[in-house]
C-alpha cells in the first residue's frame, strides 16, 4: 500500500530532478559556449559547413510553413472581412499575427523538429561511436569543435529564416486573399505597410534569435549526453524535441510579457 502511494511521488521527484539536470546542464553548456565565443576560438570551417547544412536543410520547410501560415491567417479572418467589408484591416491583422506571434512559433517548431532533432541524433551517434572521444584524444575540445559552430549557425540561420519566412507568409496571405475572398494584393500590401508593424517585426526577429539559442543549446546538450547506444540516441532525440517545443513556448511567453507590442 505504501509502495503504491509512493510510486506517483517518486515519479514526480524523478521528473523534477530530470528537469533540474536539463536546465542546469544546458545553462552550464551555454556558459561554455559563451566562453568559447569571447574571444572567438572555434573552428571556422566547421561553422561554414554547419551554416550551409542548417540553411539548406531548413529553407524548404520554412518556406512551405510560412506560405501556409499566411494563408491560414487570411482564411481565419475571411469570414469577418467579407461580413464587414473591412478589407483595409486585413494586412494589419495578417502582419501583426504573423510577424509577432504565429510566424516565429511555427517556424521555430519546424526548425527544432528538422535541425534540432538532427543535431541531437548526429551528436548522439558521435558519442556512441566514440567520435567525440576521438576528438578529445586528439586534444580537441568537442564544445569548440562541435557545439559552438552549431550554435552560431543555428542562431544566424534562425534569424535569416525568420526574415525569409515573414516574406513568404505575406506572399501566402496575398495569394489566398486574392483567390479566396477577392481582395486585391495591392490592398493587402498597402494595408500592411500603413500599419507600421516594425515593432512587431523586430519582436518576432528577436524571438527567433532566442529560439535559435535555445534550440542549439538544448539539442547539443541532449546529443552529448547520450548513453546506451541506438536506444539512447532515440531517447535523446525524443527528449530534445519535447524540451525544444516547451522552451519555445516558454520563451515566447517571457519575451511577449517583457516586450508587449500592439497595446
Amino acid at each position: 500500500m505504501r509502495r503504491l502511494l509512493m510510486a506517483p511521488l517518486s515519479s514526480v521527484g524523478r521528473s523534477a530532478l530530470g528537469l533540474a539536470e536539463t536546465i542546469g546542464g544546458a545553462t552550464l553548456l551555454f556558459g561554455r559556449i559563451l566562453r568559447a565565443l569571447i574571444p572567438p576560438r572555434f573552428d571556422r570551417d566547421e561553422t561554414w559547413r554547419q551554416l550551409y547544412g542548417v540553411g539548406v536543410k531548413s529553407y524548404a520547410i520554412v518556406v512551405v510553413t510560412a506560405l501556409f501560415v499566411g494563408a491560414i491567417m487570411v482564411i481565419q479572418t475571411a469570414f469577418y472581412v467579407r461580413r464587414t467589408g473591412a478589407t483595409s484591416l486585413l494586412g494589419y491583422g495578417v502582419g501583426f499575427t504573423v510577424f509577432a506571434e504565429i510566424g516565429p512559433i511555427l517556424i521555430g517548431l519546424m526548425f527544432s523538429g528538422r535541425v534540432g532533432a538532427n543535431t541531437t541524433a548526429e551528436l548522439g551517434t558521435m558519442v556512441v561511436t566514440e567520435q567525440v572521444d576521438a576528438l578529445r584524444a586528439l586534444a580537441i575540445d568537442p564544445i569548440r569543435y562541435l557545439v559552438v559552430p552549431r550554435f552560431v549557425a543555428m542562431m544566424i540561420m534562425m534569424g535569416l529564416l525568420m526574415v525569409l519566412g515573414d516574406g513568404f507568409a505575406i506572399i501566402g496571405a496575398t495569394l489566398t486573399a486574392d483567390t479566396l475572398i477577392g481582395v486585391d494584393p495591392s490592398v493587402l500590401i498597402s494595408s500592411l505597410l500603413e500599419s507600421h508593424l516594425l515593432d512587431e517585426y523586430l519582436l518576432g526577429l528577436g524571438k527567433a534569435l532566442c529560439f535559435g539559442v535555445s534550440i542549439s543549446v538544448l539539442s547539443c546538450w541532449f546529443g552529448l549526453g547520450v548513453r546506451g547506444g541506438a536506444t539512447g540516441v532515440g531517447r535523446a532525440v525524443n527528449n530534445s524535441v519535447v524540451a525544444n517545443a516547451a522552451a519555445i513556448f516558454f520563451i515566447d511567453f517571457v519575451v511577449g510579457w517583457l516586450f508587449p507590442v500592439g497595446l
Binding site: 561511436t129 572521444d133 584524444a137 586528439l138 586534444a139
Partner: peptide, 19 residues
C-alpha cells in the same frame, strides 16, 4: 589536458572515424 593529449595517438576499438 589538451597540452598533454597532444602527445597521444589513440586507435579506437570501433574505429571512431569521423563519418
Amino acid at each position: 589536458l589538451a597540452r598533454v593529449r597532444e602527445q597521444y595517438g589513440y586507435v579506437f576499438q570501433n574505429y571512431a572515424l569521423f563519418d
